[in-house]
Amino acid sequence: MSYIVADQLGKSFGAGAAAVHAVSGLNFRIAPGEFVAIMGESGAGKSTLLGMLGAMNAPTTGRLHVDGIDVYALNPDRLADFRREYLGFVFQSFHLIPYLSVIENVMLPLAVSRQGSPEKRRRAQEALAEVGLGGKAGRLPGEISGGEKERVAVARAIVNEPPVLLADEPTGNLDSGNSREIMRMFQRLNASGMTVIMVTHSAECSGYAGRVMRLSDGRLKTDRRTAVSALRRAS
């Protein structure tokens, strides 16, 4: 069963002869519970693809279906609801709100839900415990380390328990120890049934994924499962 279906997905900037095709003709399917690493050189179209998968960057050609929903046929409000219900984002530069505490940052996706404050707080504390930051709920982002910020970003991404986690270079600003910690966290989430799609430059990080899609000049060059992956997953 395919959960995410990309059908001739493409994105161009400009028009006519001057048009730049960031991504073109992408066809792939991702099953529920897969851990996919998207790799490629700079400018290969990785982030553009992630933006399209994240319902934030409308394609100029093709369609994207998630759980049977034609994502870009949704109106702006439903598209926002879709992001909140289906997707969790982890950004390379964390993108935490500096004036909100750690737990308030984690609760951010719940701010527009109808749950009561105690329920929101309980879920945020659970997410923080999941990433090992239960004791730093009251700190501000400026008072914690880079690795901890990344974990807060992960907690914020999973607090809504979305079926899909999207991560853009999640270890780009971290040392190797913190990078491994984040990757193991992703593996745990993936093992619990969450679909994880991660853009990365790191071959080591891609080894944690069960599937590696490699882009070049906006096109899908390779799409395969790796033996290394199996070893890392086993460990």
């Binding site: 994240g54 934030m56 702006p76 409000d77 926002a80 609801d81 992001r83 909140r84 219900e85 997707l87 984002f89 993108h95 709100i97 951010l108 996706p109 701010a111 527009v112 914020r156 809504n160």
Partner: peptide, 11 residues
């Protein structure tokens, strides 16, 4: 960020 985590325009 607000929009990425699912805030509507009205929010």
């Amino acid at each position: 960020i607000f929009r990425a985590v699912g805030f509507r325009r009205s929010h």
